[in-house]
């Protein structure tokens, strides 16, 4: 039993960290604005796991006052992550809305093409830093 729970804890931690790093990589490496947002969503999802997994107790129940139940899982992380999920949805929705507007204004949502289209104007401003 200890071996199984130990392995499970390792596996879930690895999954969390994989999602975190993969999401962040997509945000940085992709020039497509929609793909960037997908990466951002993955990155945020990893945090949900980070909060939820340590709160899970095998065989633990919801915190209900009942003499039959003795092992409880901590409910607070669930509430926190509910909030974080709402924030994540808001961010994703706003991000996608911006991408729609960018597509209307520029005709593309590839970052390098947008920079090229503004380039003639932006070039003269000399971004040193």
């Amino acid at each position: 039993m200890n071996l199984i729970t130990g392995l499970m804890a390792d596996a879930t931690n690895i999954a969390t960290i994989f999602l975190m790093v993969a999401g962040l990589y997509v945000v940085i490496a992709r020039g497509n604005m929609v793909k960037k947002l997908v990466g951002l969503s993955l990155f945020q999802s990893s945090v949900y796991l980070l909060y939820l997994l340590p709160g899970k107790i095998l065989g633990g129940s919801a915190p209900i006052l009942d003499p039959k139940l003795t092992v409880y899982a901590n409910p607070l992380p669930h509430v926190l992550i509910l909030t974080a999920i709402v924030v994540g949805i808001g961010t994703l929705a706003l991000g996608l809305t911006l991408v729609v507007r960018i597509k209307e204004a520029y005709g593309t949502f590839e970052e390098d093409e947008i920079i090229a289209r503004d380039g003639a104007k932006a070039g003269e401003q000399g971004d040193v830093a």
């Binding site: 962040l24 945020q44 204004a105 503004d118």
Partner: peptide, 23 residues
Amino acid sequence: RRALVAAYQYLIVGTIGATFYVI
């Protein structure tokens, strides 16, 4: 129209920042 791109870029960076904080 560059305001849109500026807002998008800030959204990406700002969300990464907030997520780092929450981690």
